[in-house]
Design a protein around this nucleic acid. Structure first.
Lengths: 233, 233
DNA sequence: GAGTATGGTGTACGGCGTACACCGTCAAGC
DNA sequence: GCTTGACGGTGTACGCCGTACACCATACTC
């Protein structure tokens, strides 16, 4: 029981509370603000107190990934492999949209945690019960890559064009002079969107487009009985 | 001319020498050893001297990416789009294998440099002269993602199994108990390789497998005259 | 009541990027 | 030939970071 004098004593921290607070802090202030010192302050505790619950910052990040991965929906039962995998991946994506920092953190983990392995294992299992050979499943998992987690590493996210129409056309003209092919795309996109807002690409569309293209490709290989040169898998 | 007394005066630094030294340092000591302080020491200069040539560390990294991207072969002329793009991507991959740190640095750049835009522009151009619509080109560029630069972000790179056969089978048994589907793949891989060395997956094979699957998918969409719902592109 | 595990504290260290004031060298202009 | 000013290298210092280590208060066990 908490001590009466000196105000009610805070319930002791534990690993779970630390991890959840870290996730909230990263969600609200951005991953770059997640330092051991900031997190401790958020928890009303001295920085070194955290080290009683996580070994170091790397393990904190591992734990945060576990929290996030834990939010992904379980696989739907009794569905076609393609539908089931698509749905699972889109669920993962929905989670990552709630935790925009998570994709970068996932990328940075040197070793998978058990929670991560569980998720991957379950995806592999979905291909296998769709009739994919071990060998083909292995390769398509590599092809899926980060999209299995619901994100494409956006290299150089298409920077939004300036909102002001005047500077926008100026920027486009400049772009067209140096990078005509890119400009062509940028112009098509801004036209499509009814312009003005023109905030760039529709990430969700691009993601689903990619996943569908991949799954279609996987299906085709599967149907054709693809087998590697090295084994009959 | 260098002064005679007091030893020959070092030729003054410039941006290029700084960038090249940074690339060499990252190649040899790893990107985590690339601090302004280490780099300065390597150049026989005090840390703050670097700031006369690069605005800050971010710009240093941008410049390093430019150096690396500059090593990618120019596109082959007069080839089928598929052959040409495949070849260009594999050239990019060869470059990245020489600079293993580069993929992570590329991922971390918030804004593309002109050199980067040039490369992307040229890839877009290859699709366009292959007859792809603006719209389809846009989407396939998103699908390509990091593979356009010759890498797949390897999430949780398959950790090599222990070399010792005894502990290897023990590890596999453990794996099989918790993650049966993953274990199945791990076992297949180790068998394929004539085992013993068993260093994991053949990254080059996986990469080419993925690129070919993607390019085939692109070709199919192109041949079928794919058009988005939003525009007839 | 003594012993001990648990969890929070305080101090300190070595690293990082970099702001800022400074200074030696050299070329240009009078 | 002297002055001026730009350029490139220096030295110091600040505020962050992760975290090692010694310490201490509480609370539970025997």
């Amino acid at each position: 029981m908490a001590q009466q004098v000196d105000g009610p004593r805070r319930a002791p921290l534990n690993r779970d509370r630390v991890l959840r607070a870290a996730v909230v802090l990263a969600d609200e202030a951005g991953i770059e603000s997640l330092s051991m010192r900031n997190l401790a302050q958020e928890l009303g505790v001295v920085p070194m107190a955290l080290y009683k619950h996580v070994a170091n910052k790397e393990q904190l990040l591992d734990g945060m990934v576990d929290v996030v991965v834990g939010e992904i929906d379980p696989p739907v039962r009794d569905a076609d492999w393609k539908v089931a995998i698509r749905q699972r991946i889109l669920s993962a994506r929905a989670v990552l949209l709630r935790h925009p920092w998570a994709s970068r953190v996932i990328e940075s983990r040197p070793q998978p945690t058990p929670v991560v392995l569980d998720y991957m294992n379950s995806i592999v299992g979905m291909f296998r019960s769709g009739g994919f050979s071990v060998d083909l499943t292995h390769h398509v998992m590599h092809v899926l890559g980060s999209r299995m987690w619901g994100f494409t590493q956006e290299l150089f996210p298409a920077s939004p064009l300036p909102a002001d129409p005047a500077t926008q056309t100026a920027t486009l003209r400049e772009l067209a002079a140096r990078y005509p092919h890119i400009a062509e795309i940028a112009m098509a996109v801004t036209h499509d969107e009814g312009s003005v807002v023109g905030h760039g690409c529709d990430d969700q569309f691009e993601f689903e487009f990619a996943v569908d293209l991949l799954l279609d490709g996987f299906e085709r290989l599967h149907q054709r009985g693809w087998a590697s040169r090295r084994s009959t898998g």
